[in-house]
């Protein structure tokens, strides 16, 4: 029985980590040598591949991606938290309308509205800047949905009422009392926006034509196209692009995993 268990553990590890391992190995190869067989042990071309990557605009692109993910994170979390708090903890006429509005916008994948969104961005003069890729997260229906559920389940209404009777102002109640209680939810949500905006491929691909504003996924998929497809360099770039995601994941996976189902589970 014990053997079966360990075999299973080994299998899960291999299946989930193997592709990542292969990526790291590939980044140490000279591009043309990758295709002689699946690279399972490191070669000696890593430095050259890194040089190739850094000779391009990689650093600027990296900075672009960081800008996008941080801006998207702040915007997305802020608007989601505010509307989530309003819908979850107040009674007002438009409350159920707002709730349905959030759910319906969540049901239609953002991808199908992108043609209209791109045209709107062009009209606003944001074509070829990073704005389209950032602004989309300010209207993040999943985030709003998540926050409504999370705040409804974790912030007791009585505490807010007590504070109100004691004469605390509404912003104070939100930032002084509710915020500390929903910190784990905010952490989960920030991780999600960061991951998703960092890895987002379609939106930057169709909105950004200007190489100056490329983000990592788009940049890497065009890397080396000029003279030859340099897979070694591309894999090195991919490995480096995965780094922040990996760090965030290792630091926050516990809170993240705990918070992620808050929207679905009513404890």
């Amino acid at each position: 029985m014990k053997v079966v268990k360990w075999i299973f553990i080994a299998l899960v590890t291999a299946v989930s980590l193997f592709p990542f391992y292969v990526m790291i190995m590939m980044s140490t190869y000279y591009s043309e040598n990758i295709f002689k067989g699946l690279p399972l042990s490191p070669s000696d071309y890593l430095t050259e591949n890194l040089m190739t990557v850094f000779k391009t605009d990689f650093i600027r692109v990296y900075a672009n991606s960081l800008t996008v993910s941080f801006a998207a994170g702040i915007l997305g979390v802020l608007t989601s938290t505010l509307i989530g708090y309003a819908v979850a903890k107040f009674n007002f006429k438009l409350k159920s309308f707002l709730n349905y509005f959030i759910i319906i916008t969540m049901m239609v994948p953002a991808q199908v509205g992108l043609i209209g969104y791109i045209i709107e961005m062009r009209h606003m003069g944001f074509g070829n800047t990073l704005m389209p890729v950032i602004l989309i997260w300010s209207a993040w229906s999943f985030g709003a949905f998540f926050m409504v559920q999370y705040i409804r389940d974790t912030v007791p209404t009585e505490i807010l009422e007590c504070a109100r009777i004691d004469g605390a102002s509404e912003p104070r109640i939100l930032f002084g009392i509710a915020m500390p209680l929903i910190k784990p939810g905010i952490a989960t949500l920030s991780t999600l926006v960061f991951l998703w905006s960092w890895n987002n491929y379609l939106l930057p691909l169709v909105t950004i034509n200007n190489a100056k504003s490329f983000t990592l996924p788009v940049f890497i998929s065009t890397l080396g196209i000029v003279h030859r497809t340099d897979y070694g360099a591309r894999m090195a770039a991919l490995a480096m692009a995965t780094l922040p995601v990996l760090i965030i994941f290792l630091l926050g996976s516990r809170t993240f995993i705990k918070g992620i189902t808050a929207g679905a589970v009513k404890g």
Binding site: T79, I83, A86, F101, A139
Partner: peptide
């Protein structure tokens, strides 16, 4: 009054942004 005001302040930005970036683009489409 202040509670009502705060609801408006909390909910309006998101409502506005959702309308502008999620719903409005569907119309030109």
């Amino acid at each position: 009054f202040s509670t009502k005001m705060s609801i408006a302040v909390f909910a309006t930005p998101a409502l506005l942004l959702f309308t502008v970036f999620c719903v409005y683009p569907l119309l030109p489409q």
